[in-house]
């Protein structure tokens, strides 16, 4: 069997389950307690449940795809390279960024 013919049905089934936005199939989903610890740092600036009221923007309830793209752009130096977010995201791997995007897309709770 050709590899391509194995991949296509797998992608199709993921899409049919509504999981296509969940990111690369290689990303291992982190346990909820680990995700909670990761997210604990974010809320210190972005507010409880990611709903800050001040100069730092809220992140709770934003679109998961948007959050993932933005966090990856910070990490890779493509967005606001001098900012705190770049310095912080460079310490996060793809699985951790995935977990944070999911966490805050769900409104900042598990």
């Amino acid at each position: 069997m050709q590899p391509s013919s194995r991949v296509a049905p797998a992608l199709l089934s993921l899409a049919s389950l509504g999981l296509a936005l969940a990111g690369p199939a290689a990303a291992a989903e982190l346990p909820a307690t680990t995700a909670a610890v990761l997210a604990g740092g974010c809320v210190n600036c972005h507010g409880p449940d990611g709903r800050a009221q001040g100069a730092i923007p809220p992140i709770g309830g934003l679109d998961e795809g948007y959050l993932r793209a933005r966090l990856l752009a910070f990490r890779d130096g493509r967005d606001a390279p001098g900012s705190v977010m770049t310095r912080l995201m460079k310490g996060h791997d793809t699985d951790q960024i995935e977990a944070l995007a999911k966490w805050f897309a769900r409104g900042g709770t598990r």
């Binding site: 680990t34 705190v84 310490g91």
Partner: peptide
């Protein structure tokens, strides 16, 4: 604060018989 969040999650997991979280700390 981030140390406390790790310790709290660890203690809760321990007392509830769950797997402990992975350590990650941030500072700004």
């Amino acid at each position: 604060n981030t140390q406390a969040k790790l310790a709290a999650a660890t203690i809760a997991a321990d007392l509830l018989g769950q797997a402990p979280p992975a350590a990650l700390f941030t500072n700004t």
